[in-house]
Design a binder for these strands. Structure first.
Lengths: 344, 344
DNA sequence: TTCTGGCACTCGTAGGTTCAGAGTGCCAGG
DNA sequence: CCTGGCACTCTGAACCTACGAGTGCCAGAA
């Protein structure tokens, strides 16, 4: 890869950068003459044409037809993102607006809802936000409530404000004292622990109860472990699908597979799941495993209440998107959500 | 209105019906000749043409251009739905499939999710399902959990399986015995009551506690009342947006306002809210108050765990939709969801 | 009175043709 | 190594034409 890039001198890279910028702006293939006019490259169109030929040779740009302008390829965008572009920071007023908008949230649902709408609006693309995941969260409190003689409701509250609840059908009648005892012992051991670690701390619990109560205890614990492990319950919120209409000219074809993909939570979860734990992840066109999204790009990043990322959020747009601006918006929003979560 | 209809004899109505059916099938303006061929009306094209002229005069159909076929107007669809069409019952295998699909649900979220997906798939349109609303539900249980000396978590469980939770910041330290007492008294009075009626049963509660505990009691009750009254918390689930691509030929124009409308929960809630309490509601084109949905039709119906409707569900599609089939699917799905809710 | 066959007419669409302009590749000279 | 010039290519817009589906109307039949 270093070899390939060495073959491209600075001017060629500048040409590629200019092509990407222009194409993102105009959505039309960009020719040598227009390039020289808009960016002061200090060389003639003919020179630029030579550079373009080289860039095409290397697979960074591509011509829809002979004698039309050039369009960046996925590989071209990749190079642009990796080497030629800088994340564009949000302006102070924008940052203030983000902060202000997110501050109004009243609970976790609201926070996520606001985040996803904000992100869609800022980027004018489709925004996706994953709820703070259970596996990265810690236990704030576990509650057991007797609803009927043999029915117990189990409520799990995490440090991110998420609440999961399960019904437990017990094998026999459950005494209130046993329940209180169990509740106290569970919380004493589990509070503050990360969810996946909790079962380890509760192993010896059944042994601490009377023989008669053990079936109940193990049943409750089984349900709890199930809730702790439940990865399927990962939830996602979506906004900005209306922005899909700005996607391309050849309509139903481009947009339909994307809409279908967006309906599949599984796909979205996997998409976000592939985000690197630290730093921003940008996947471009064919780099995306899911076929329906092959003509889109995904910009995603983790966010969390502390330093650690507890969930991911991101944006899905056409490969021809304003990468620096989108990345700036995604990063800024992720930061502020993190702060909000840490405060609450 | 009766007067207008009287002017249309049976054959004219048959012609209108045929036009609607053909247009829904082909999506293309339908002419007199094709009509006579496909439906055996027993008259010649010329006669049909005369009838069509009359129907157009009355505003039931309309010509895109001179010398193209006819297209039903909103008014035409309205007459079709009201007088000319019958709800098409689902076939036995279809009913079995619905039943089977919905039976697999594990909780309320899952039930709603399955319902909306099923509806979208059956009708090949956009489906909308409202969560069982709080105001129509009854209290199953109310739980109070001390999380910290001055922090109490309040959990409200309804008969429809819905769980709402709130944090309460109390003015002073809350004793465990007081909390247990309060919990017991609240449940004794509220269990089984409809949510809006609950405050009435709890009025004299503060007076039953020691002077010192009253601020805590009133604070908790205030939060509870708030949760009970929360109409904003109406939630909605959506599916089948990919079906929008089958809407019309002139693409971004038709689809964009619809996508925008679908993102506005408020719009959707109002849309469903306007559904009649009993029976199916069909709104066609301009009959819909919201501008972005002016070229769509909405078929909606209430569903509930007993005889009573606790929420609404429906389908949004192009005015040119298969009304009998859509209405049949919507009705069937609503019935089965109702049964599922009643069982759980 | 109501339906029918015939006929002239309208008009949108599909297909073909032309033309201008944008863009290219290449080459010879600075 | 860059540049201006030049011949070439090809798309897209504009225009035209012919076709055919569909209509409205009218005179005659039932």
């Amino acid at each position: 890869m270093a070899g390939e890039i060495r073959q491209l001198d600075d001017r060629k890279l500048a040409v590629l950068r200019a092509i990407v910028q222009d194409y993102v702006g105009t959505e039309e293939p960009v020719g040598s003459k227009a390039l020289v006019e808009r960016h002061n490259l200090g060389v003639s169109p003919a020179t630029v044409r030579n550079d373009m030929a080289a860039l095409e040779e290397e697979g960074y740009i591509h011509q829809p037809h002979t004698s039309a302008g050039r369009i960046p390829t996925d590989k071209g965008y990749r190079l642009f993102v990796d080497k030629l572009a800088e994340i564009k920071p949000m302006s102070a007023p924008e940052r203030r607006a983000i902060r202000h908008f997110l501050d109004g949230a009243v609970d976790l649902d609201d926070t996520v809802a606001r985040t996803v709408r904000l992100l869609a609006q800022l980027t004018r693309q489709v925004a996706v936000v994953q709820y703070p995941s259970l596996s990265r969260s810690t236990v704030r409190h576990i509650e057991l409530v007797a609803l009927a003689p043999t029915k117990v409701m189990l409520v799990l509250i995490t440090n991110t404000g998420r609440v999961e609840q399960r019904m437990v059908d017990c094998p026999g009648t459950v005494g209130e004292t046993v329940l209180a005892d169990l509740r106290a012992r569970i919380n004493a051991r589990a509070a503050g622990q990360r969810l996946p670690d909790v079962p380890g701390f509760l192993e010896e619990l059944p042994a601490m109860f009377e023989q008669a109560d053990r079936p109940t205890v193990t049943t409750v614990l089984a349900t709890l472990f199930e809730a702790l492990a439940e990865q399927n319950e990962e939830r996602i919120m979506l906004a900005g699908t209306a922005n899909l209409t700005r996607f391309g000219h050849d309509f139903p074809l481009t947009i339909q597979p994307v809409l279908e993909a967006l309906e599949e939570q599984v796909v979205l979860l996997r998409l976000l799941g592939e985000t690197a734990d630290a730093g921003m992840t940008v996947r471009i066109g064919r780099e995306i495993a899911y076929e329906g999204l092959n003509s889109t790009s995904v910009v995603s990043v983790g966010y969390g209440s502390g330093d650690e990322s507890v969930a991911k959020l991101g944006v899905i747009g056409p490969t021809r998107m304003d990468y620096p601006g989108t990345m700036g918006a995604v990063r800024a929003v992720a930061r502020y959500v993190g702060q909000i979560l840490a405060e609450s």
